[in-house]
Design a protein around this nucleic acid. Structure first.
Lengths: 196, 196, 196, 196
DNA sequence: CATGAATGAGACTTCATTCAT
DNA sequence: TATGAATGAAGTCTCATTCAT
């Protein structure tokens, strides 16, 4: 009984590695099966299509992301503290499983013509929650009002994604202290800006 | 005499529309030929492969981008003014040809596994130039030093790309005044931050 | 269980017929699949390319040919007897599977620019073995020395191939007694010559 | 006026080189035009198709061959002398223009499925003439009768073609004295055989 | 659950030939 | 005669998905 789940998990984990390494379009279902050390056909026993594997990976991870944002929003932190919690969660996600984050970002959130469009609504939930945090901070007079909450949310998330992109492109693994510092720099940049 | 160039241009323009509409991977060379109203084979008369069409589009556009950044850097503006010029150029590029910008962003700069990797060096030239602007501003004491220039450059560019992404995903065309306001919000956000 | 081998064999046999009928260049992979009554894709399940099918056919057959020559050489026949055994083997090969022999000759051994070049080394092994037989006969004083063994080997093999070519071009199947007589005429010609 | 002929000749000569180097199927019409340093379209001004170029080359050369055989037959040589004249002509043809001979042999006389079939009748005229020489020699009691004239003709011609094939495959040019000796060995082999 | 052979639609690319200039 | 752009049919190979065992 546990076998079922094991093999399924095995396939998902293998898919992450293969998608990260070769990209979704470039890899074949056979590559996933090979990487997972399971028979070709078994992939189709657990998933109805290659797309569904990526959908599953994204939905699982993005669900955790939304929970993390909700969690952050529920906390008693300041607006800046909430953004710091979110940035921290995303960076930690990368630390914990960089391949998965690469796949989520490269193959889904930035894939405007394919999976990005499919999951658009779900992706925007995150932006909306972040925007809500910003809006409330503006109402409290903590954040400036010239910048719309929606714009701010995109800016915040886009900034983070680009930093992660830099790491993703980098052949060398990123050092832990660099990850840690990045969390602070993200928040500092988005809250206080570059100007001295 | 002008025919050669005309047809070639015709194909490139058609490719932009088709790539923007269907995505690079999803469209067939036949779609480009149809959209350009030329024979199938003519595409291969001017370009050695489907890839080369996208490469050409990217290289042309990114070259202009690098020039614009160089130009901005050479100007006598303040650091903020230079960033404003760059943001302005990118937003205007989108206004002028949103399809092309969509293709550049979605199919190249964010395609970590395919064209993004191919053109990585060229893409990073832009980041490096922006970083240089930031570094100089830091040396002058105008920008804070806690944020590394490289980080700042990624943050700035990532922020802009995400804003454009928002427009790209949007089915409705963006209004001109919104584009105009975005330029200011970009600079305000990156230079002064969200905090009041 | 035997299915794997069966289908693979089925494809090879079909390829022989199709290559013989239409020629390697003129036939399409689809023709092979049709002739074998298998799906298009299965051809590529067993062979990596159309070329590999011909390579396989050639290598299998030529291997048997080399064995036959080795066998003949090992026998206690006279030099003439050995040449007779080799000529006999080749003619019998034609009798048994004229299509295959046609393909081997027309598409490989005589295709100087394509497969002939690819398999040159392997083809020359046969010439070398025959030359060795001649050389030994010369050492024994049985064969004249004015003709180099290499020349003799080419002459012998070329003579046979041309006779087979004649049959190959012929629309009517060759009668068995004609095949049988050819064996003798080949040996008579190469050993004793035309002169009375 | 001479220009017309010049360009046409230029194209034919270039075709010989290109066909010899890459093979008829592998080369493109553009390669011929390039090699001839003429415009693409000009090839089609002088020849109605790529096939016709090869046809022309073959027909011209084979015509000379038939004349040479006729000539040899008309001479007052012995049968052996006539065969020697023919072998000499073919070897000299190779010496004079190895590329052309390579093309004739590889792309036409041995191409059972394509040009060989097209020109079969013309090719067989040569065999028939040679067979006639043999038949007459048999009638005169000079050649043995066990070997049919048709068989003898194929044997003679096949032997020669195989020797030329050896040279064709050879990366190094053949030395003149080797060519000269080959003429004698050909005749010796076919008339007297290998046996001492 | 598990296996991997079998299916066949689809896409890129090539290139002989035509044609307008 | 000369040019080379334009045409489009054809063929190889890929690979997601299905299915029999």
């Amino acid at each position: 009984m546990a076998t079922v789940t094991d093999k399924r998990r095995q396939i998902l984990d293998a898919a992450v590695r293969v998608f990260a390494r070769q990209g979704f379009h470039t890899c074949r279902v056979a590559d996933i099966a090979d990487e997972a050390s399971v028979a070709y056909g078994l992939v189709y026993h657990y998933f109805s299509s290659k797309d569904e594997i990526l959908d599953t990976l994204f939905l699982q991870r993005w669900g955790m992301m939304l929970e993390a944002i909700t969690e952050a929003d529920r906390s008693h932190h300041s607006a800046q503290g909430k953004l710091r919690a979110i940035a921290g969660f995303i960076v930690d996600s990368y630390r914990h499983n960089p391949d998965l984050m690469k796949v989520i970002i490269v193959e889904v959130t930035r894939a405007a013509n394919t999976f990005g469009r499919t999951h658009l609504a779900r992706i925007r939930e995150a932006y909306a929650q972040i925007a809500a945090i910003v809006a409330r901070a503006q109402a409290e007079g903590v954040f400036r009002e010239e910048i719309t909450p929606e714009f701010a949310a995109l800016a915040f998330y886009g900034l983070i994604e680009q930093i992660l992109s830099g790491w993703i492109f980098d052949p060398d693994p990123v050092r832990d202290d660099e990850l840690e510092r990045a969390k602070d720099m993200i928040v500092l940049t988005i809250c206080r800006g570059l100007e001295a």
